[in-house]
Design a protein around this nucleic acid. Sequence first.
DNA 1: TCTCCGATTAGAC
DNA 2: CTAACGGTCTAATCGGAGA
Length: 430
Amino acid sequence: MAACTAMRKRSLALIDCNNFYVSAERVFRPDLEGRPVIVLSNNDGAVVSRSNEAKALGIKMGEPFFKVRHLVDAHNVAVFSSNYALYADMSNRVMSILAAFSPVQEVYSVDECWLDLTGFDDIAQRIRTIRMMVGRHVGIPVCVGCASTKTLSKLANHVAKRHPRSQGVFDYNILTEAQKANVLAHVPVDEVWGIGRKLTAALTKVSIRTALDLRDADIAAMRARHGVVMEKTIRELREESCIELEEVSPARQQIISSRSFGKTVTRLEDLEQAVAHFLTNAASKLRAQESVCSLLQVFLLTNRFRPEMPQYCPTVSVPLPLPTADTQTLLVWATKALRQMYKPGYEYKKAGIILGEIHSEHQAVQGDLFAEPIKPSPLMNVIDKINARYGRGSVRLSQDVAGGGAWAMRQDKKSPQYTTNWFEIPECKA
DNA sequence: TCTCCGATTAGAC
DNA sequence: CTAACGGTCTAATCGGAGA
């Protein structure tokens, strides 16, 4: 009970964009309505978003593109590379419209957010209006699920998506006990938030197949076997609130920047450029959250999908003498680490860096009460300001080569950045 | 035996 | 033509090292 605070019943609405990346592309390509559409991951490697028509063709989430190529060709599927600038901008538009419907909002991911609607007396109307307003002003279809806990509002959203009769909205709170049981009995346990592949397999073994089975399982036994997350999930299915809204996203404890290369890389020089690029991204994120880090890790990977090739996946950890967020300082260490682990003769497929032991720049160095707070470097300050004003990458360190050089990722099918770059709008091309 | 810490696992999107 | 399989993030848990 300590973990869970009993509260008066709340109304939490989970708003989730339907097939978000595909829907964002369709906003600018209305001709694709009704046609199967998919969006690919970095390097055009795997399918990460599918229209309903594409799902109906049997194209699965996360499948490598080359494995669905035959379906794409046979059914005239429209294919896009990921266009993150576009999706981020569309996401901001959706979130700011949603913010008008409640003073309490948690933006959970690029395509989902919670609104606390507790206390509003017109919930049924309100969630229909939310759906309509986002559709009208941004053109992205969303579904709304409402319930008293996060886990149940996720589930309610699933019901709203799945059942055409619901017209895209579903309020679990207004159901009778019998109706709730009926709804839960029709939701497979793997659709419950927090239940992934491994837990589904374990639960199936003990005949827990639906959300209702899970809700009514023995808490003590389930906690003993599967841990506290499982306990919270079960309690949340019972309408005991265990997972609170987080209106302000906590500072990252770790910042990773890494990427698979478009083609394998062997030269140290190219790896150095890639690492400089990753470090630039990561350090600017670190400064944006007003933090410094005391640990830097650099890693290299060969292609694990080619076991017949020689494999080499080294990592070097560098504990930093002073916490910092300065790109140049970090780059000196990263380059040193890279040279230390680099071996010629391997086909490297991926590299990356991790910034760890992150703390606020406003706090003195741990263990040294008299240390000065870490001042952000004036040069970094200027670079961040210019890049904020004129766009990411406007000013770069010389090591961070424009366009990505030898290791650039494949993105053959990217749509224009309609909303953030005039020069990519077809009518504005020179 | 206990505690700490890094590595691994599982999940989300 | 071939070969082709994503990127971050957190929390919990595991297992070895050292006290």
